[in-house]
Design a binder for these strands. Structure first.
Lengths: 239, 239
DNA sequence: TCCAGTCTGTCATCCTGCCGACAATCTGCT
DNA sequence: AGCAGATTGTCGGCAGGATGACAGACTGGA
């Protein structure tokens, strides 16, 4: 198998965990305990993260890299829920839902992840129950995000959904680059299509339209947002 | 305004709250505290629940009736997330997300709700932080549900989505009735369409198809599931 | 520098579900 | 019983997006 344990010291693991928003306000002791149960793993680009054991109950923190969350269908179609970067924690929902969630996690770029086994994590939380509050708040926020997405997909036109998706991506992966917000992410049209639930060809046409309107700029794989406000307007209700 | 306070004693409020799964294992004291801050309200069929104040931060427990959760678009389209019945707690996500969630809650049938203001609820939870754990677990389950729905909507054909929706409705609102599972719910095709993101006409055709295949029986507004297993099979991947 | 693999641009065609319309049917209420 | 309003059944025409195909462009590594 291509993945392998990443040789990180306790201190390095602590540092990586502390950058994750969920743990930002946690006491030193708990962070240390977390780091003690955390297992650092390296994943080359494209690797399935729970490939070896789809039932495994673990959350993970992204120390570096990008992780794609997606779900496949029997017919070979794929839906991409999102592409998540550096200090996020993912797969919390795997710890608790029964039957386990049906999404796959894949290293979209070369990544280092800190795996947190369910039982160890639960023990730490139970030792200081107020920390469950932070988990509840995080789940609430995530739930809110997925509800918004669900509504957008059922109500909006393709234009709107694409504009919304670009704005979202800009918020997560965007870096202010001279003439606009540059998405620091290779983003093939196929990928964008899988996020929108449409084909590559449809994305192509629409993307060209956006470019012609001066909303975005395209360099092969990469997109720069030229006019975030206009995109927002389209995403909301503008035609 | 058509809604009005419902004259319930502390004991009646406690009894209603105790039936809600979230509070099932909570200590007596906390239930009493909850009941003390709870405000019982009566809503005639069709009433908007937060109409008076869309910003209001309150969760509510359904004591009786049915509540529809939906979101409208500027173009007049509507997406129905679900129809929830008796001992469920709803709108938790309203307490915490910022900006507030964009879904509307409406009494789909005449209902009595117990409103739980955010600050009071938070105080009770903070007094016994282990209860936050229950909230986290609930949010996790709900999040799992919405993720499944999101995937289904993006991957499946209309047949599959409709089968899945009927199975879901049967699980929540179904009562074993002689020759199958009877949905104890009036369910116009327009409504089903709003849940699936398609028009009434499409629903009509498909529903007739299902009936012809012996999967369901239709009496005007009401549907009876005749063959749950076959519906499940369709929902999964069988075409 | 070259090559294999990936990604893009663009067709023509097909198909699913939308739209608007209208008659028939059912319900709850008076 | 009778009526208003809600719900269903069913068209034909239309549109947006899917499909399959293919040439050309770009990339990263040997």
């Amino acid at each position: 198998m291509a993945t392998k344990a990443h040789p990180w010291s306790q201190d390095e693991r602590e540092a990586a965990l502390r950058r994750c928003p969920l743990f930002a306000c946690w006491p030193e002791v708990r962070i240390a305990e977390l780091a003690a149960i955390a297992r650092a793993e390296f994943y080359p680009r494209g690797t399935e993260i729970f490939a070896h054991d789809p039932e495994r109950r673990e959350a993970f923190v992204i120390a570096s890299g990008e992780v794609e969350v997606s779900r496949g269908s029997a017919e070979g179609k794929k839906f991409v829920l999102g592409i998540n970067g550096a200090p996020q924690i993912l797969a919390i929902v795997r710890l608790l839902t029964d039957p386990p969630i049906r999404y796959d996690y894949r290293a979209y770029e070369e990544s280092v992840l800190l795996h947190l086994p369910a039982d160890g994590l639960a023990a730490i939380l139970d030792a200081e129950p107020m920390l469950w509050r932070d988990v509840a708040l995080l789940m609430c926020a995530r739930h809110g995000d997925s509800l918004r997405l669900l509504g957008d997909h059922n109500l909006g036109s393709l234009d709107q959904r694409m504009a919304a998706t670009l704005v979202d991506l800009a918020r997560i992966h965007g870096t202010a680059g001279g003439p606009g917000i540059e998405l620091g992410l290779r983003l093939p049209q196929e990928q964008l299509g899988a996020m929108l639930g449409v084909t590559r060809q449809s994305v192509n046409k629409l993307l060209r339209g956006f470019e012609a309107a001066g909303l975005i700029a395209i360099y092969y794989n990469r997109i720069t947002i030229r006019d975030p406000a206009a995109l927002d307007a389209i995403a909301e209700g503008g035609d």
